[in-house]
C-alpha cells in the first residue's frame, strides 16, 4: 500500500493540477496579506475561502483523478496486489498531496509575513487543521462517488451536487427548520445539526477560535460553552475523524466487492 501511496503521490506531484492548486493558495495568501495588512483579518477572510473552496476542489479533483487513472488502476488490479492497498494507497496519495498543497501554499506566505511570532498562530493552525480535515473528508467522498458510478458525467454531477448540498443547501434547510420551529428550544438541535456537517463544524470551530464578538451573544454562549470545553473539542474532532473513517471504510468495502 505504501508503494502505491508513494506512486500516487509522485504522480500527482508531477501533475499540473497540483501546481495550479498550490499556486492558487500561494497567490491567495500573498494577496490577502497584501490587501489586509493585518494577520487576524486575513485569517478571517481566509476562513471563508477555505470552508468553501477546499471541499469543492477536493471533490472535483478527487473524482477527476480517479476517472483519469482508471486504466492504471485496472493494470494494477491484474497484478498480485491486494485491492485494499490499491484503493487506499490512491486515496491517501491524493489526500496527502492536496493537503500538502494547501499547507505549503498558505503556510509559506503567512510564515514569511511572520505568523509564527504573532498571536494569530493558533488561529492560523486551527484553520490549516480544519482545511486538512476537509481535504481528507471530501477526497474520500469523491472516491466513493467515483467508485459507485461508472458514468463519468453522472459522477461529476453527483460530486458537484454533494458539494452544493454540504456547503449551501444544508444551511438553508437548517435555517428553514430553525425558523419553522422557533417556538421550541433549539439549542441542542442546532448544536447537533451543525456537528453533523463537516463544513459547518469547521466553520464554527474556526469562528470560536477567532472570538467573533457576535457569537458571544446570548445564544452564542451556548455554543461557546460546548465547543470551548475539552469535551466539546474532543467530540467535534471525533466527529471530523468519523467523517474521514466512514467514507474510507466504504471505499474499502466497495473496492473489495466491485467487479471491474
Amino acid at each position: 500500500m505504501l508503494k502505491i501511496l508513494k506512486y500516487s503521490f509522485y504522480d500527482l506531484s508531477r501533475s499540473r493540477w497540483s501546481y495550479v492548486y498550490f499556486f492558487f493558495y500561494l497567490l491567495l495568501g500573498v494577496v490577502l496579506l497584501f490587501l489586509n495588512n493585518d494577520l487576524s483579518n486575513a485569517v478571517i477572510t481566509l476562513m471563508n475561502v477555505i470552508i468553501i473552496l477546499v471541499p469543492l476542489i477536493s471533490t472535483i479533483f478527487g473524482v477527476m483523478y480517479f476517472y483519469n487513472s482508471r486504466e492504471f488502476t485496472e493494470l494494477l488490479l491484474a497484478l498480485p496486489v491486494s485491492r485494499n492497498s490499491i484503493f487506499l494507497g490512491q486515496y491517501f496519495g491524493l489526500a496527502i498531496s492536496l493537503s500538502t498543497s494547501l499547507i505549503l501554499g498558505l503556510g509559506l506566505p503567512f510564515i514569511a509575513y511572520g505568523v509564527l511570532q504573532s498571536g494569530a498562530i493558533w488561529d492560523f493552525a486551527s484553520l490549516l487543521i480544519s482545511g486538512v480535515f476537509l481535504s481528507l473528508i471530501f477526497t474520500a467522498l469523491a472516491l466513493n462517488i467515483a467508485l459507485s458510478n461508472e458514468n463519468k458525467i453522472k459522477g461529476f454531477g453527483l460530486a458537484i451536487l454533494l458539494w452544493l448540498f454540504m456547503a449551501i443547501v444544508y444551511d438553508g434547510l437548517f435555517l428553514v427548520a430553525l425558523v419553522y420551529f422557533q417556538d421550541y428550544p433549539l439549542d441542542k438541535f442546532s448544536l447537533i445539526t451543525i456537528m453533523l456537517n463537516p463544513i459547518d463544524l469547521s466553520r464554527i470551530l474556526i469562528l470560536l477560535k477567532l472570538d467573533i464578538s457576535a457569537l458571544l451573544g446570548y445564544t452564542g454562549a451556548v455554543f461557546k460553552d460546548f465547543f470551548g470545553t475539552a469535551l466539546g473539542t474532543i467530540i467535534s474532532f471525533s466527529v471530523l475523524i468519523c467523517w474521514v473513517i466512514l467514507p474510507v471504510w466504504r471505499i474499502k468495502y466497495i473496492s473489495e466487492k466491485k467487479d471491474f
Partner: peptide
C-alpha cells in the same frame, strides 16, 4: 427572530 440562527454566521448560504 430566531437567535439560534447565529450559528450560521459567515456561511455561504
Amino acid at each position: 427572530k430566531t437567535p439560534e440562527a447565529i450559528i450560521l454566521l459567515r456561511s455561504m448560504f
